[in-house]
Simulated scan of single mutants.
Amino acid sequence: MHDAPGPTPAPPADWAEINRANWDERVPVHVGGKFYDLPGFVAGADTLLDFELAEVGEVTGKQLLHLQCHLGLDTLSWARRGARVTGLDFSAPAVAEAAKLAERIGADTARFVVSDVYAAAEALAGERFDVVYTGRGALPWLPDLARWARTVAALLRPGGFLYLAEFHPLADLVEEDPGVLVEDYFQRAPQLVEDSGSYADQDAALASSRTVQWQHGLGDVVSALAAAGLRLEFLHEHAHGHFRLPAGPRLPLVYSLRAVRPS
């Protein structure tokens, strides 16, 4: 029997400002670098994974909201499949670049909004959506999953669903080489990270190098959604993701879930 995690400690009061400064500064690095390959995307490249497309299903004509959209590549990949998309992010420079990208590819049904996730319902004036989508690498930037889940529920129309594809919390605790568990799965305290680079360019020199991040277990995520009144349809674990471990027994690297707001 495992010990249940205790209450999540309070984050630093300025956690959002710290993280926003870091993400604002990442934007030109990501726009100009090879990791996101914006020219390739404009030429038709897709950023969605095969299981995301299968699990979300047909989106033509649906209203889809992408929370924490960053540069909007995933958002616009859904737009290319016929969804009427809204991308939301707390970084104004990222949203500006996403809007430029939408114009470059002719996605005239796409729009982008600057807002903190927790203020999304207010920023969108109570609008509701058929699909709320959140992609990989989003949840570790949020301290309060219960509040996140309530926000998602408020953004969904009855019968609409949340689709989340996220890096698996267990895989995020494994050191890629030699592939061993190096952190505590039940750690819930805010993690103060100092890194002058970006995952997209480790050599980038960022002046705003501090971030605040949180570790959330699968049970934390599912329980928060249930408490917000959403009904879980599935939770899947996937053996492919953002890195490869050495040959041997496998770990889940990504998980995906769909949770419906009852009619």
Rank of each mutant, 00 (worst) to 15 (best):
Q63H: 14
P93D: 10
R147G: 08
L155N: 12
D201S: 08
V117M: 14
D184E: 15
V117K: 01
A146F: 00
R81F: 08
R136M: 11
T86C: 08
A125I: 02
H168D: 10
G57I: 12
D74I: 00
E58K: 06
P143M: 09
E97F: 08
P140E: 10
E52K: 00
R104M: 04
L67Y: 06
G217W: 05
T75M: 05
Q215E: 09
A171P: 03
G32I: 01
D24K: 02
A21G: 13
G219T: 11
E233Q: 15
E97W: 00
T75S: 12
D37S: 14
F35S: 14
G61P: 12
A247G: 10
V180E: 14
R188L: 06
A121Q: 08
R128H: 02
A123N: 07
L173A: 15
L225E: 00
T151L: 05
P12V: 04
G137V: 01
H238C: 08
A138N: 10
A125N: 12
W148D: 06
P178V: 04
L73R: 11
H240S: 12
A4Y: 00
R111M: 09
S263A: 14
A204L: 07
A99Q: 14
E55Y: 07
E175T: 11
A92M: 01
G159E: 11
Q213R: 15
P190M: 11
W23S: 09
P158S: 11
A200M: 06
A125W: 01
A200R: 00
R250Q: 13
R261P: 00
A125C: 10
F90T: 01
D46H: 07
D89W: 04
P11L: 07
S263R: 13
L156E: 08
P140I: 09
D3E: 15
A94L: 06
H238L: 09
Q187P: 00
Q68I: 14
E122M: 04
G135H: 07
A149D: 04
K62M: 11
T60S: 15
A259G: 05
P190H: 13
L124H: 06
W78L: 02
G61Q: 13
G135A: 15
T134Q: 07
A189W: 08
D50Y: 04
F51N: 11
S77L: 01
F161A: 15
P28N: 02
M1V: 09
V117E: 08
S208W: 02
W78M: 01
L235M: 14
G44W: 10
T75R: 01
E127R: 15
E194S: 13
G33R: 03
W23E: 05
P246F: 07
P158N: 13
L253F: 02
R210H: 13
C69R: 05
R80K: 14
N22I: 03
V113E: 02
H70F: 14
L218R: 05
A102P: 06
R157F: 05
E122R: 12
P39Y: 06
A204Q: 06
L164N: 11
T211R: 13
G106E: 02
H30W: 07
G217F: 04
L49W: 14
